[in-house]
Computed example of a mutant assay.
Amino acid sequence: MGYLRERFQILFAFTLTLPWLISYLLGFHYPPHIEALLSGLAVLGSAFLLSWAAETAEMDVPRSVSLAAVALLAVLPEYAVDAYFAWMAGKVGGDYIHYATANMTGANRLLIGVGWSLIMLIAIFKSRKREVELDEGLRLEMFFLLIATIYAFILPLKGSISVFDSLIFVSMYAGYAYMITKAPHEDFTPEGVPAYLCSLPAKRRRANVVAYMLYAGAMIFISVEAFSEGLLGTAENFGIDSFLMVQWLAPLASESPEFIVAMYLVRKMRVSAGLNALISSKVNQWTLLIGTIAIVFSIAGMHVQPLPLDARQREEVFLTAAQSLFATAIILDRKVGVVEALALLSLFCLQFVFPTVHARNILSVIYLALALPMLYRHRKELIETVRYVRTLARR
């Protein structure tokens, strides 16, 4: 009875999707909070299935394809939720315009503030060292994360995300996806459920991968509207700020599998693989996710139009960019210590302790005040990062 735990995990992931699948097929209707719960569980289960299938696929597809595809598939649930809000923003406008930005900024800040910091702390604890050293290959992610962050500061200044901005961000992702195929990477060593799937005969393994992807994609498609609208209805019924519900709860459901997979890798002492996964996800979200919302918004509205940012959204985008700059400055020397990881976590938590406009602005300034001196101190590492990317480009 080998891989018993892994088989149970697969069964559990499928089980999470069944209540909503049955409800959807039979046309059952629930109060908003029940609908959000059931459809959210379906998104969660689908996210696990996608993550496992994508990693297993690395065994059968060319390395140049799998590197970019795996990272993209892992964050597909988050893209689906944000795309829904952007689509509705283009169709009906109103508060949906705010929700599209809220979901994007929340997903990015959550990934760094909780994901990066906790994985770094676990890695330091497991290695029993004062700091962990990151792979040389992460210089590629650092480079694109930095240029995307610098460009992102323009958005709150002009008060919108235009289709031109989208093309810039999507081009950054395309450049990253191309360059990552040339970079050296850790050999593919599956763990957990992917290890079980890779142990299957080739035909059965490939059939499972395709089935998981198709099933998860279909479940996300039939769940995303109910999940998104259920969150809004729950917020209204219980007197909760709908902006905060969309900003934090939606990304938490769609991104938790990434955190869990990364934690599993670090616990298995595959520190580089765990950190690489979350840092790559941040590059994807900070380029492709922010880049697609204005395009979806324009398609839904049937004409080219910028996604407007009001005062609240400008603050949120600026704060997200400031946090991203600080996080990039931390990893630029490829060493992360306890103090730096705790700084990421504690500064992230402060926005909930002091949830005011003034506090968000002060927090943005704190991020910048910490990041800029670190960037200057690590300027030689920054030059080495640029050289590393140029070397890859010549290959």
Rank of each mutant, 00 (worst) to 15 (best):
Y3P: 01
F8Y: 10
I10L: 09
L11N: 07
T15D: 10
L16D: 05
L18R: 00
W20Q: 01
L21S: 01
S23D: 14
L26Y: 14
G27A: 04
F28M: 07
Y30K: 04
P31F: 14
H33F: 13
L44V: 01
F48A: 00
L49R: 00
L49G: 01
E55R: 00
T56K: 00
D60M: 03
P62F: 04
R63Y: 07
V65L: 09
L67I: 11
A69Y: 09
A69P: 00
V70S: 06
Y79K: 13
V81R: 05
Y84V: 07
A86N: 01
V92G: 05
V92R: 07
A100D: 05
A102S: 00
A102H: 03
M104K: 03
N108C: 08
L110W: 11
A123P: 11
R128W: 14
L134F: 08
M142N: 14
F143K: 10
I147Q: 08
I147A: 07
I150P: 06
A152D: 03
F153D: 12
D165T: 10
I168D: 08
Y173I: 12
A174C: 12
A177R: 06
M179G: 05
A183M: 11
H185P: 08
G192K: 04
P194W: 08
A195W: 04
L200K: 00
K203F: 14
R204D: 00
M213I: 14
L214E: 12
Y215R: 13
F221M: 11
S223R: 12
E225D: 14
S228D: 15
S228W: 15
L231N: 04
L231A: 13
D241E: 08
L244N: 06
M245W: 11
V246S: 02
Q247A: 05
L252E: 05
L252Y: 03
A253T: 15
V266R: 00
R270D: 13
V271E: 09
A277K: 09
A277W: 06
L278P: 01
L278T: 03
S281I: 11
N284D: 11
W286E: 04
I290D: 01
I293K: 05
A294S: 13
V296G: 03
G301V: 09
G301L: 07
Q305N: 11
Q313I: 06
F318A: 15
T320M: 14
A322P: 04
A322V: 01
A329Q: 06
I330T: 05
V338H: 04
A343P: 05
F352P: 02
T356G: 09
L363M: 10
S364G: 03
I366C: 03
L368Q: 04
H378E: 15
R379M: 13
E381W: 13
L382C: 13
T385H: 11
R387P: 02
R395E: 13
